[in-house]
């Protein structure tokens, strides 16, 4: 589905990712975890064309997307949900959703709007409300609904549960599982809440200082006593 090969990237002269090579399989949830500043968010931004790539390759469905601009990458079926500022606060919920289908025909947009709202029916109540008036959880729902309108085949979430109450965070993670199970979307999930993320993951990668330390099954990561203790704050007995 998506392959990253020997990727070196960063911001200007500041290199954050070093020789990162990863594979994200189709219709699976791949979780990327790691301590603060490890380059998790930078990895997603780099895949989406938002950072400077020094060398390496990013292949999506056999197409090289390494140096494509974000709007081209978006049109290929990849959605990226940033950690913050993932909705337009000064636009209404409806305007946000319509923005998500910017490149669609009117008929297609109406159809996708309806199916996206079926996935998050609670948003129907707030259509004329400005996004800044929504709660944190509702905003995440709106951000996901916006992505769904573009029928992505791959969705990348950057810490979707950050600053959410545990109950709401759980709901958001359940929605992500539903995206995989019901819509068959491939998910790349970057999370600080490693334990919760690994519970729903099919594959896990651990990044430390911009390098891949672990890449495999979540179970194996959790069972690795050294990595679990150092980077996840868990021991194998907690699994």
């Amino acid at each position: 589905m998506l392959k990253v090969e020997n990727l070196n990237a960063g911001y200007g002269k500041l290199q954050v990712l070093h020789e990162v090579s990863l594979f994200f399989p189709e219709r699976k949830i791949s979780v990327v975890i790691g301590p603060n500043g490890s380059g998790k968010s930078t990895l997603l931004k780099t895949i989406f064309g938002l950072t400077k790539i020094y060398s390496g390759k990013i292949i999506f469905e056999n197409n090289d997307i390494t140096f494509l601009p974000p709007h081209k990458i978006a049109s290929m079926g990849i959605a990226y949900l940033p950690q913050t500022n993932n909705v337009f606060e000064n636009l209404t919920v409806e305007e946000n959703l319509r923005m998500a289908g910017y490149n669609l025909s009117k008929e297609e947009l109406e159809a996708r709007l309806a199916s996206s709202l079926e996935f998050f029916p609670q948003l129907k109540l707030y259509m004329k409300r400005k996004a800044r008036q929504l709660s944190g959880g509702e905003r995440q729902m709106l951000a996901i609904a916006m992505s769904l309108i573009r029928k992505p085949r791959l969705m990348m979430f950057d810490e979707p549960t950050a600053a959410l109450a545990p109950k709401i965070a759980h709901q958001v993670l359940r929605s992500i599982v539903k995206l995989r199970d019901e819509l068959g979307i491939t998910i790349i999930l970057v999370e600080q809440n490693a334990r919760a993320a690994l519970e729903i993951a099919d594959k896990a990668s651990l990044l430390v200082s911009g390098r891949v330390i672990f890449d495999g099954l979540p179970k194996d990561l959790l069972e690795n006593p050294e990595l679990g203790r150092m980077y996840l704050g868990v021991t194998s007995s907690q699994v």
Binding site: L50, P70, H71, A74, F88, R98
Partner: peptide, 22 residues
């Protein structure tokens, strides 16, 4: 549609570009 895209691009250019807006 164009106007909403313009307002969106002004408010949050990186998000607008992720949604396919030039």
């Amino acid at each position: 549609k164009l106007g909403v895209a313009l307002r969106a691009s002004i408010e949050n250019p990186s998000l607008a570009s992720t949604l396919g807006v030039n």
